[in-house]
Simulated assay, not measured.
Amino acid sequence: MRTSPLIPGESLPELELTRSDGAVAELCDLLDKDRTLVYFMRTPTCPVCHSHLRQMTRTTFGGGALARRIVVVVPGDSNDAATVAARHPELSDRIVASATAHESIGLFVRAGLQQSGTFVVDSARTVLTARTATIPLGSFNEAEALEALGETNAPATRTA
């Protein structure tokens, strides 16, 4: 069992993932051919995590939507994934749940709060960047994510 979060250079393990309809999801099927942002929510009801998801869905760069390069992992089961998907329908096919994923990558409950985090991984699941936090305000940074996704030359825009 891990005792600390994944760091750049390590591999994101295969995770037990479930879609909102109860179907099993394979991580390799969700990853982009180049780089993917994998966002681990604190809880299905975390208001800060939902704010981060709204920010991600409004961000575009290089003619594409950031939302197409995201995988959202919700702690829990298919009902929890469905709860999040209902609030973010534009991400519904990118939202999965897992009862074990957070712990398997080193995100634990600290001071009563589940840690959350953003990892950018390549198609081989190698972690390129990692940002984790016990307080969810620190678990996502748009500029850092875009840079890790290789979008440093393309201006990011957010729609209202």
Rank of each mutant, 00 (worst) to 15 (best):
G64E: 14
S116D: 09
P89D: 09
M1W: 10
C46S: 14
R125K: 04
L15K: 09
L27I: 01
L66G: 00
M41S: 07
I105W: 02
T36L: 05
R110A: 11
V48G: 06
G117M: 09
P75H: 05
A82Y: 03
R2W: 13
L66N: 01
V73M: 10
A130I: 11
T134W: 01
D29R: 03
M1C: 08
S116K: 10
K33D: 14
I95L: 13
L6F: 06
R131C: 02
P75A: 05
R42F: 05
L66P: 04
T159N: 04
V109T: 14
D80A: 13
M56Q: 05
R131W: 02
L53N: 04
P44C: 00
F119L: 15
S116F: 08
A143S: 08
P44F: 04
T18V: 15
G112Q: 11
A145W: 02
A99Y: 04
T59F: 07
D93F: 00
Q115G: 13
V38W: 02
H50I: 04
G150L: 03
L107C: 10
R68H: 15
G117A: 12
A86F: 08
A154H: 09
E144I: 11
A148S: 07
P136R: 03
D21E: 11
A124V: 05
L66Y: 04
A86N: 12
V84E: 04
H52Q: 02
R2S: 09
E144T: 14
L149K: 03
T129Y: 06
S139I: 02
G63W: 09
T129D: 09
N153F: 06
R68I: 02
V109Q: 13
A25V: 00
R2P: 10
A81G: 10
A145N: 00
L27D: 01
R42L: 01
Q55M: 12
H102A: 14
T100M: 01
L37P: 03
S139D: 05
T45C: 08
A99F: 07
L17R: 07
V72Y: 04
G22T: 05
T134V: 14
I135T: 13
R131D: 00
V71E: 06
